[in-house]
Design a protein around this nucleic acid. Structure first.
Lengths: 165, 165
DNA sequence: CGAGTGAGTTCCAAAAGCGAACTCGGCCAA
DNA sequence: TTGGCCGAGTTCGCTTTTGGAACTCACTCG
């Protein structure tokens, strides 16, 4: 096994798409129901040029859709695709963590669950074992014991190293 | 209500702490059991100087602890604090989303749940309503109807704007 | 006409990121 | 005793990205 290069991991791939500054705040706003450029600028504080970049990136990645909502001066808004909607746990887990550990720097989340016709409820993100259904604590996690990134440096590659300049 | 400035939200606060590039990959490695500087460098691909910054930041934020594991040449490793452990859902939800939507760019996650003495199981992150226990779909979310960031621009502030520098 | 709206662009200085090489204490093998 | 290796960083110099502010463009409203 070749341990040159970073560990290939879906989380790293996800961060390539969602991890740049502002991107997750954009998703938050879309979940919050703010769909227009200026609204997102105001609610997130992102600079307009950066926001343009991020929205283009998210669109290319298929997380967000640019939708014309008016023709005459053509105007667009942004909507979550299915993939974007699936990122809800990412946003909510951040929300939840921030609430738990940084309450000094923020206010309670306003977003709620609309339960039928009752009043809105608070949300919770839980990590469970897919098979046994139990909640997962960090100390019950495990990795394959031959994880090549876990050990000491060693064996950078098997062949002669590619010329390193 | 004053809508100048971004929406105060725990998710934004959380991203201030965890949202810089590499930070969440550092947490991932700590969950994966990689605790040493060089190991994290290898597994994430982060530049060493940047990694130093991030680790200092995470330490200051109380997410990570720097622990001496050897005296003679003093050597340190990094451990998750309780707050850091609580970020597990953030990492796992990213892992899960990446696996669902970017499988082309990554491999299956290696991390598992160790279930007693049985064999490891896959993990799942679910979003449920804290009160009624139901799973939450994005279209069952709701916001207070007076959300000041939802509407059009308007009323930037009530008095003359405080000079912004 | 003149002001306002909304989704962007453009400009540019300041900040952050990055790769590579270097440091520093100590260990180990020849 | 010399010379390499380990491991946790630092330092250097260059690119890339950011971010604030002002500007544009098409159109509406009073």
């Amino acid at each position: 096994m070749d341990t040159s290069g970073p560990r290939p991991c879906p989380a790293a791939a996800a961060l390539d798409v969602l991890g740049e500054r502002w991107s997750l705040l954009v998703l938050r706003e879309l979940f919050y129901g703010v769909h227009r450029f200026d609204g997102i600028v105001r609610a997130t504080g992102a600079p307009r040029n950066i926001l343009t970049n991020r929205l283009r990136g998210l669109e290319e990645a298929g997380v967000v859709r640019r939708v014309r909502y008016q023709d005459r001066p053509p105007r667009f808004e942004y909507r979550l695709t299915d993939a974007g909607q699936d990122a809800l746990p990412v946003v909510l887990s951040l929300l939840h963590w921030g609430e738990q550990h940084l309450s000094a720097r923020s206010t309670a989340p306003q977003i709620r669950h609309r339960h039928g016709d009752g009043r809105p409820h608070r949300l919770r993100v839980t990590t469970t074992c897919e098979t046994c259904g139990e909640p997962v604590a960090p100390d019950t996690l495990t990795m394959p014991k031959d994880d090549p990134w876990a050990g000491p440096a060693k064996s950078r590659s098997t062949g002669p190293a590619k010329s390193r300049s």
